[in-house]
Design a protein around this nucleic acid. Structure first.
Lengths: 288, 288
DNA sequence: ACGCTCGATAAGCAACACTGATGGGGTGGG
DNA sequence: CCCACCCCATCAGTGTTGCTTATCGAGCGT
């Protein structure tokens, strides 16, 4: 289970082609073929069907493991590089789009920081691999409960902000006039599925006992404006933090009364922040 | 970052000796020396001080990463072996000592299953590496909230049981006569530290805002009887699930009223349980 | 001062990991 | 229908790697 073999396996699986993977990795096709053969011999089972190239059941399992494994490997390497030498360059902050509430925005420095808006899972990854000094992740949680994060590497988190959530409904929706809504009443509606933009549909489904919250349009990317436009056009409902759920023409944002969940933002960093990162971290947590 | 190099690094760090690690791994001392040198060159920084052999700061970081990394590697290998061929042998159930409540015990089959009582962290590890078909882990949680588990590999969990917790106090303790106690009132007392037996002192401290709950005697191993004996002898307090906190002579178990936490037991398994494992899983979850 | 142990280093050798070339199987165009 | 093409598997060749044995210098206890 050499990491190199793992890396070629994932690219082959992704591109569904030995030759294309070889080109991308800078190997010959022969080498890639031998890599896969070595992996299959090591694990004692075929991982890919040839012609067409597709993962077998065992290969599916490996695909699921290989990503986090390689990520953790990079995280370890980055962590060590970080402790070995802290060059302290320009500060970068990775964040999900919905984590940028008013409190956070207020405490950003006027200049000198770069912001990377990423999908939800990519934020911890960026922080552990050194792609960002600090990260902001958000999610739904019971009040004052911590978020559940993938522990790709040792991370420390601190709560930064909590705010109520609202449902974004088209103005024509029968419940659009309500002052507050229970999520359970909307379980049978169609919901927008936008995992990159921080809309955790599976999380809602879990809160509801695994039922309901069927997805309508799936929306990839991290742009919130498109999402609200979709909701206004009646393509599905969306659950957003109060500050992000602005009422645009054609849509209204109604507070959620039940269950008692809040939109929570957490600051995540690897190790102990130093220099400019420490200043920003202090400013961000002072809001809370 | 070859896994082999990682493995030799962790054994060298653990044994604090190149030669001893070489003996344990079946290499020559020279090979181990070259392994470490290769790692250090790859990462561009010294990892160990020689004479005496001890990890540097970078080495400490690596130690923290290497364990989960190797565990996940084993988990991937075991997972693939599992999907490739399901031999379905004798069923083994890994469990923490305090997870074995009355409900769980009642639904165990009369024979044919083996039980492995392990420290808390070892249970998920055993399940993902195939050392056990099912696992039972326990911990403190808000009612009906899931536990926080290390995600060494994709695991599925299901709640099995919840029960109130009690504090085990020596009979001579000033609060021993109370009908119920608030944990906050006991933050300044000395507590038994028994991580293997499922007494999460750090978790209590976190609930209390990071303060208090100083450890007294540290008790390694998974034996609950020793723990209650220690508590009865006045060496420190212990927080246990109601069914485990039997009142022995010299000690009383008092319910906890605040904060509202329960002792929760979860069934954990990798993939979809089949055969005898599925039967046991169904029996266990039927209790909940 | 001596002997012992520990880790680093040098040299040798076998196994490995690539490359380039070749072959067989499937597919689409002429 | 057959040929040309693309794909992956396999083979032989070669430079590199990874391990071993052997030797050395340094610290430590006697």
């Amino acid at each position: 289970m050499d990491p190199h073999l793992l890396r070629t396996y994932v690219t082959v699986a992704r591109l569904a082609s030995f030759s294309a993977a070889a080109r991308e990795l800078g190997y010959t096709q022969s080498a890639v073929s031998q890599h896969i053969a070595a992996l299959e011999q090591d694990l004692g089972t075929p991982l890919l069907t040839r012609r067409p190239v597709a993962p077998t059941a065992a290969g599916e399992r490996l695909s699921e493991h290989a990503g986090p494994l390689l990520l953790r490997l990079d995280a370890a390497r980055a962590d060590i590089a970080r402790t070995a030498a802290a060059p302290e360059q320009g500060l970068t902050l990775a964040t999900t789009p919905t984590a940028l509430g008013p409190g956070v925005l207020a405490s950003l420095p006027a200049a000198g920081a770069t912001l990377r808006v990423l999908p939800r899972d990519a934020v911890p990854a960026a922080v552990v691999t050194g792609g960002a000094d600090l990260g902001l992740v958000d999610g739904l949680a019971a009040p004052s409960d911590p978020l559940r994060l993938p522990d790709v590497a040792p991370l420390t988190t601190r709560g930064v902000a909590e705010e109520p959530v609202r449902v974004l409904l088209p103005a024509t929706h029968p419940l659009a006039g309500r002052l507050a809504l229970r999520l359970g009443d909307l379980a049978d509606a169609r919901w927008l599925d936008a995992p990159d933009a921080g809309l955790p549909l599976d999380r809602l489904r879990a809160l509801n006992g695994g039922r309901g919250f069927r997805p309508s349009v799936r929306c990839e990317g991290t742009d919130l404006r498109s999402l609200t436009a979709l909701a206004a056009a009646g393509h599905g409902l969306a659950l957003l933090p109060a500050s992000a759920a602005v009422s645009v023409p054609g849509a209204v944002a109604v507070p959620v009364s039940e269950p008692r969940v809040v939109h929570r933002v957490e600051l995540v960093h690897a190790g102990v922040p130093a220099g400019a990162a420490a200043v920003l971290a202090a400013a961000l947590t002072a809001v809370a």
